[in-house]
Nucleic acid binder design. Structure first.
Lengths: 227, 227
DNA sequence: GTCTATATAGGGATAGAC
DNA sequence: GTCTATCCCTATATAGAC
């Protein structure tokens, strides 16, 4: 169960380095660097810079020279970690997938009450996208230009998330807690609202809306429709 | 007042050629073709192909050779209409702005009842994005890579739309029809839901959700929260 | 393991024929 | 008004020094 955003944040940032280590191990055959410590250090810089630049001007518009400038690496150095530009996408995506899967599995399904369970899922998603905003934004915006394999995964995880919410809503309807409504549409709505949070992050910041405010708002909207 | 989607569709498609003519006239100094009829014909092809290709692989990833292949024009022919690749963006954007402004002005503000007025605005936006889906999608997805001037306009029109909804919701609250709620958040939500319609068009099509179904759904969700 | 220098291709842009 | 052929730069990718 999720206590609050701060606790969530603490747990996750502790595990961030582990995730990069996983990324390194999963991609070992493409990476010519053998020392794990340096590899993890550089992969971190590469992933962070790629996300920053791709999110500000688009992945395709970002040149590898931009990336080297931003990350402080040289072209040769960079190419020790990738075979070509597309491999960058693979690094980014596997990085996000690992965290997302881990976290959503960890934070859902242990709650008894139907309504609380839905709320927990909403919070888990919001908290996660808050901490991993750059990755969520990248995945959404670059989805159409992802290479085949990554595209399949991206579509799959999107669907998976929507199915989670669909299931929770259907549970509520079957239990008689919620009114009978078009559950698919409601699940779509939940996802659209959760996506808006990371796609329009600046807008909400300007309006001084905190994550927990937004979570409560989403719950209230859904419940006034479903109760 | 909007009757229904079919009527709306009829009126708008009749005026589509007029819009391209406007685009031509507004960009006459950049376009070296003097015969209006041929210019309009080719501009139509250029705009359609650009939207199709940019929406499937991204504007930056689309090469001008791709564009020539798809539109059936030659490189030389294309360059009679633009000075450089960026000008394509300008053509696309001015095309969309002209239609959007015209339409939203035409279809809002004449309704008496507060609740109906909000519903009319929702329908107007959904209908418009339905007919101009490619343009809305392009504007949203390429927003970050638009040239300065177009970016300003895009941000402005987004804000304008959100302010329209904000105004309508505040009207309802002041009139005592709606409960007192955070109107800004509700307006954000409305916009997020309207955007989801054109961003995830395929999903809704697969689920057999028609525009009017979705409009009714959005209204119901909002009203259960506001009433 | 990291850097600089360089090869190569792909794509934006243009000249000039028709 | 439209096309083909070509220019030239930029960005990816690699070779090889340190």
């Amino acid at each position: 169960m999720i206590e609050n955003y701060e606790a969530f944040r603490g747990e996750l940032s502790m595990s961030k380095e582990d995730v990069i280590r996983d990324v390194y191990r999963q991609n070992k055959e493409r990476i010519s660097i053998k020392k794990e410590a340096t590899a993890v250090k550089n992969l971190t810089r590469i992933i962070e810079s790629t996300l920053r630049l791709a999110n500000s001007k688009g992945f395709h518009a970002m040149t590898l020279r931009d990336l080297c400038g931003d990350s402080g690496m040289s072209m040769g150095g960079l190419y020790a970690y990738i075979r070509n530009k597309e491999d960058l996408i693979h690094l980014i995506q596997s990085h996000g997938f690992i965290i997302t899967r881990r976290t959503l599995l960890h934070y859902t399904g242990e709650v008894e009450d139907v309504r609380d369970r839905l709320f927990a899922a909403i919070k888990a998603h919001l908290y996660l996208s808050e901490l991993m905003r750059a990755w969520f934004y990248f995945s959404y915006m670059e989805a159409k230009s992802l290479p085949a394999e990554e595209k399949r995964d991206a579509v799959a995880i999107e669907l998976e998330i929507e199915e989670i919410f669909l299931g929770l809503i259907e549970d509520g309807i079957e239990a008689g807690v919620y009114r009978s409504r078009n559950a698919r549409l409601v699940a779509s709505m939940v996802k659209a609202l959760l996506q808006d949070w990371y796609l329009k992050r600046r807008k909400y910041r300007d309006q001084n809306v905190a994550v927990d405010d937004y979570a409560a708002f989403v719950r209230d909207v859904i419940e006034s429709y479903l109760l």
